[in-house]
Amino acid sequence: MSTDTDPVTPSPAGAHHVAPPDIRPWWLRPKTFVIAAGVVVFAAFMWRFGGGDIRFSTEHRPRPGTTFDWDYFFALVPDMLRGIWVTAQATVAGFAVALVIGLLLALGRRSRLRVVRLPVALFIEFVRSTPLLIQLYFVYYALPDWDITLGAFVTLVIGLGVHYGTYCSEAYRAGINSVPKGQWEASTALNLGPTTKWSQIIIPQAIPNVLPALGNFLIAGFKDAPLGSTIQVTGILAFATAASGRSFDAGVEPYTLIGIGFLLVSIPSAWLVRRLERRIAYERIS
């Protein structure tokens, strides 16, 4: 396996093969904070430009008497794409929020202080055991009573973020616990501070174990995001509701379309998530 079979023989001083210090490019290193920074920038971008109020066109209607009008079907495609774009933006932004909130919750749950640990655990339990739909309603319709008014899109992002944040926190927790005890002990023996220990040792090793769960949450979040239509987010479900409401028999085409729209997004993203997992797992062993 190894070429270095002879025992320790220090090379003569200035030997030719003294390799230059490591020059792996940063994007090949598991520097997670770079990724995290990217996610935050992306989220900020979404926040600023995403979720604008979309008006769906109202001119298209199916020809009366047809069960499935292909012209009507194709005429709806642009609106469907705009709707799914909003839904996808909400999902990605919400997931970025979930990643950060999840980490904070996971760390809070590990806190040495009971006053931090217990409320955090309670909060996680509470959020996980109530439906996202109720949480969205609460944020959108109940919080204004306390003078907190959020736009529909922002509400959806926060709702998804908090809801999936609690799930992510559990995944992080399992991932953190999966880092062998010896790694923590080596960090102590090297006298590394908490910041280095977490950012350089624990989190980079926890991430590959957490990725499959996170990927599944992303896809599950995408399937939950249409709930936003109940609080007036002009996403994909709102598109279909609007289109089908226009005439008596206009329902089949838009609902077929959103099924296709979901497949168009879900299948490639599931594929991407799996690839990413494999990549990171590979980098880890090599």
């Binding site: 598991p30 790694q183 023996a189 590394l192 280095t196 980098e283």
Partner: peptide
């Protein structure tokens, strides 16, 4: 340690240089 406890996601050099840099 008996079981080395090297950091598996870092090269040999990174393993050695980490503590001098960070600690």
């Amino acid at each position: 340690f008996q079981h080395f406890n090297l950091f598996p996601h870092m090269t040999a050099l990174e393993n050695i240089a980490l503590a001098p840099i960070k600690a």
